[in-house]
Design a binder for these strands. Sequence first.
DNA 1: TCGACTTACGAAGGAGCCCTTCATTACTAG
DNA 2: CTAGTAATGAAGGGCTCCTTCGTAAGTCGA
Lengths: 384, 384
Amino acid sequence: MADLRGGDLSRLRQLNSLTAIRALRRAGPLTLSALAERTGLSRPSMKEVTAELMELGWVEEVPPSPGTMGRPARRYRFRADSGHLVGVDIGGHNIRAALSDLDGEILAETRQPVSPDDPLEDRLAAIERAVSGCLALSRTTVDDLWTVAVGTIGVIDPEGRVVYSAAVPAWRDLDLAAELRRMFPCQVLIENDSRLAARAEHRRGVAKGARDVVFLHVGRRMGAGLIIGGKVHRGFGAASGEIVMLPEARWFHAPEHLNTCVSVPDGTPPEDAAGYTLAAARNGDPAALEAVERYVDDLAVGTAAMVLILDPEMVVLGGGFSRSADVLLDPLRRRLERSCMRMPEVRASTLGDECVVVGAIDYAVDHLDDQLFTPDSGPLPVTR
Amino acid sequence: MADLRGGDLSRLRQLNSLTAIRALRRAGPLTLSALAERTGLSRPSMKEVTAELMELGWVEEVPPSPGTMGRPARRYRFRADSGHLVGVDIGGHNIRAALSDLDGEILAETRQPVSPDDPLEDRLAAIERAVSGCLALSRTTVDDLWTVAVGTIGVIDPEGRVVYSAAVPAWRDLDLAAELRRMFPCQVLIENDSRLAARAEHRRGVAKGARDVVFLHVGRRMGAGLIIGGKVHRGFGAASGEIVMLPEARWFHAPEHLNTCVSVPDGTPPEDAAGYTLAAARNGDPAALEAVERYVDDLAVGTAAMVLILDPEMVVLGGGFSRSADVLLDPLRRRLERSCMRMPEVRASTLGDECVVVGAIDYAVDHLDDQLFTPDSGPLPVTR
DNA sequence: TCGACTTACGAAGGAGCCCTTCATTACTAG
DNA sequence: CTAGTAATGAAGGGCTCCTTCGTAAGTCGA
């Protein structure tokens, strides 16, 4: 709770530097006066702060904006291009990668199809291909990368080792962090994909600004990500959100209702069955509608558990099936209304399939922020 | 997430004052040097801070401790006696009250038996009697009270209105905060009892210092309190922890296994039946042991849901039945080991029946801290 | 009882950070 | 070209913190 460390003058300056960087990251190029006003500091102080940040390479000057009254003010911006971040979504059937600048602005994206049964080497090679594709698209090199953040299904321990993965056999017990560190000469972060998706939805999606959010990551596999107190909740062993493991919560087998619907034509590849059922339900197919009902019945049990336990502001339906949110949302709301103490908002994800990659980028950005913004290590690191 | 306000010199001083108060509250009387060391400030600076705090009445000098080498250092302490706090536990069958100083040190306690069927006026009168009993015991008056914090079963909305109460019929839809404010001319706080118990266990009980804790409030009624990120989690509508409302979690009817055990002699008052069963189980009575098994089976389902969702560091078994933790803990651990991804520590409450009152006191202390320690309102208020 | 030792006190001087103020500079509008 | 506007840069002052040093008030041992 309490750190008992008092403040120093230099800490004050640090704090103000960080505040300035934040303001610049948030609002693009700013003049000294604008910065001063936003941060509440005086202009001369702001000037010193800015000079220091320029010295350190975090901030650079841009040409003044023309056409204004009076003497043109110098403008400064955060050097988002002094490095790059990569986010990777390692799914069962696809590996997606995205490259962004230090502000999280996405500059390139790629996708590599894989199969759940691929041997380990093939998967790792696909990751490398996906990332180098991004690098090529944006004409950067691997040396420009500051951070690679990876999201994957399964439970990842705090050190980046895969503890459990039902979906990808080759994944189990893999020291994924070590493999990736071998691949990329920069910081590597690993996180559960549902938590990344929740993060993305909270930073730039439908749950922006909400304090407590339950994110349902529904697709061929089920998962959940929690935002509590405005922060992603990982849990003590990084295993939060695994309600799917509890039989009574009825999540594990829930997708089968969609897969085994009689409306699905014979010969449909198994990975497309659920999508077919959902589409059929949208068109009013009675058997499909009934399958969706049964699916939502199950989905609602685990969801109600989370809602009753956490009393969140909002429940976000995301993941592969959220494309069919129009079919799922209303039944889900009806079920939840029956069991919940206080009904939360129930909304569909706005990021869709991208949510995990985007969340990985956001994770990298946040991690960078943490490094910048809690510099117990002393002054800001020099970049250039 | 980010407040974009830069720091001022005065803010630095404020921060240091607050740090000093914290250190004093935590570690009792301290000398200037000790304070300086703890806070990282220099002694001269600490001296100025202390002088200011004495001026404002927050801190006072105590006689130096004798028998030390060198010149005796002046010692200072937080003036915990400049006001008093009251905690109240409104249960179905008992109303407990405790009075403490501003540090949360308990000075007096009282108890008033009530019945769940008592009319509203009787209950409110009992509350008043319990509190004035404390005041009399500690020779204080109601004017000395800074805060009254109340814990009660049921769901309380953020404004202090009782939304739902299965246990106490007269409680429903009551504006409890308003009633209590009429009774006590000071700040009144209302909170769910399970959350208060969790708070107590986290501040001074078995879960001290843990970051994420699931507190099981088991007794004739079931409840849960969550500590997430070192803070009590209330939820958006102050309705967190209500897993008991979910039939699939099997909490609601769980205590019946203990009440209906065949070993309980006829004529045992219903409120003592569970206690009898637990005692019999401790003595090896087979029917009682079986009832306990069934009880724990149910208890474990809801608990596993919370553990899987949150991945806490620790599960604390508290509430009335925690007196029989020796009978319950091992079976509970065995059940949880089967269903949990990562097994948390499972421990018994150390505060027992007192946990809610104590938690109420702690809530009042924390609330005071918040007022002191986030003084956006400006300088510290003067006391005296 | 007295000196040596230990530890805290209090005052002085200095550095860092922020603020306000004001003359100066650069650009636009007419 | 002049008036008006708005940013710039430098000077001066206040607050908070730090280090340093001589002084004060105890304990310990002879």
